[in-house]
């Protein structure tokens, strides 16, 4: 049986998340056996590149119109069936989470969402791990149905090239029509969405007010990071809601999370504690965040942040 990967694309290109899922599909196939088939829905000029990350076959399905979880789940289920795939991998992204439940029901498959380990299938028992309790623990799950759907946690397996481009085959699969109309979409151009961000600069109530965010944006700018904030900051309207990270906001998993003027309440940590490296800037040596950090600076953020920005600029111009 093969492994089918739904490789997400946007604006006519496979996204980084799509390569990530494909590489994870490759690692999965190595562990449980089978080939990797990557599926692209809609146009993607770089679809052939999916071969480099482990897909032995890439299929592209034409699709006009916007995302609809029902339509996409139907296309993916049909592609799985046609390609003899009983394990399907999608990203743990907004679209992935939106369609995975539907897909699991359609395929009569066991679903484990937000996985961050390579599955094993020793003795026919399919096992995979996922973080639970907002990252405070890890659960090993067993799927005991013939079909399986996994959603892959972002940034868990940075994509690595393992092979070469492959030819893209067009397949005509009809997912049916959407039963509602999309009237508007608004996406911020050029900014990496928080759940996908590799670098995040986040600030809290220690900033004193929204007028002080210039230093945060400048720091984010020099390293190419996405900005985030603690919940009270979003609740009081200092920053937009979509920047709120934590247990009741967005969960992030970047390589670098810089927390500025955030105390590190447990509900905040729940959304950020899977970050690879955490830097905390806080003037209170007792701030709980220091316990969860890799690097700390205990001083006034209004001095530290501009100095850090300058140091990074200097580092960039030197190298």
């Amino acid at each position: 049986m093969s492994v089918l990967v739904f490789a997400e694309s946007a604006k006519g290109k496979v996204k980084k998340a799509g390569f990530e899922a494909t590489y994870y599909g490759h690692l999965t196939a190595q562990s449980i056996g089978g080939d990797v088939v990557a599926l692209v829905i809609g146009d993607a000029a770089n679809a052939a590149d999916l071969g480099k990350y482990g897909a032995s076959k890439v299929i592209q399905v034409n699709h006009n119109g916007s995302f609809d979880s029902g339509v996409y789940a139907s296309i993916i289920a049909q592609a799985a069936e046609q390609n003899g795939a009983n394990t399907v991998i999608v990203n743990h992204s907004s679209s992935g989470k939106s369609l995975s439940g539907r897909l699991a029901v359609k395929m009569n498959a066991g679903l484990v969402s937000g996985v961050n380990s390579i599955p094993t299938a020793d003795g026919g028992s399919f096992k995979v791990k996922k973080p639970v309790f907002s990252g405070k623990a890890i659960a090993e799950c067993e799927i005991n149905s013939a079909n399986r759907v996994l959603t892959l946690m972002g940034n868990a397996y940075p994509p690595v090239e393992v092979s070469n481009e492959v030819n893209v085959e067009n397949a005509s699969i009809d997912g049916g029509a959407s039963s509602y109309t999309v009237t508007d979409t608004k996406t911020a151009d050029g900014i990496v969405p928080l759940p996908e961000a590799e670098l995040v600069v986040s600030a809290g109530r220690g900033m004193k007010g929204p007028e002080n965010w210039g230093i945060i944006e400048e720091l984010a700018d020099v390293i190419g990071a996405t900005t985030a904030c603690s919940r009270p900051v979003a609740d009081t309207g200092w920053r937009p809601h979509h920047e709120h990270v934590g247990q009741t906001g967005v969960a992030v998993r970047p390589n670098l999370y810089i927390a500025i003027g955030i105390s590190g309440a447990i509900q905040h940590l729940a959304g950020v504690n899977s970050s690879k490296t955490i830097v905390v800037i806080n003037k209170d040596p007792e701030a709980p965040f220091f316990k969860a950090a890799d690097y700390g600076v205990c001083a006034d953020l209004f001095d530290v942040v501009p100095a850090l920005t300058e140091a990074i600029k200097k580092h960039k111009s030197d190298s």
């Binding site: 890890i138 799927i143 890799d294």
Partner: peptide, 26 residues
């Protein structure tokens, strides 16, 4: 129900924190 949790573990603990002097951002 086609999925069940077999076991739980706690995530690996972080190594200690490295404090950096505020005057030495380099």
């Amino acid at each position: 129900g086609n999925v069940k949790v077999l076991s739980y573990e706690l995530p690996p603990v972080k190594g200690g924190i490295t404090m950096v002097d505020a005057d030495d951002m380099d």
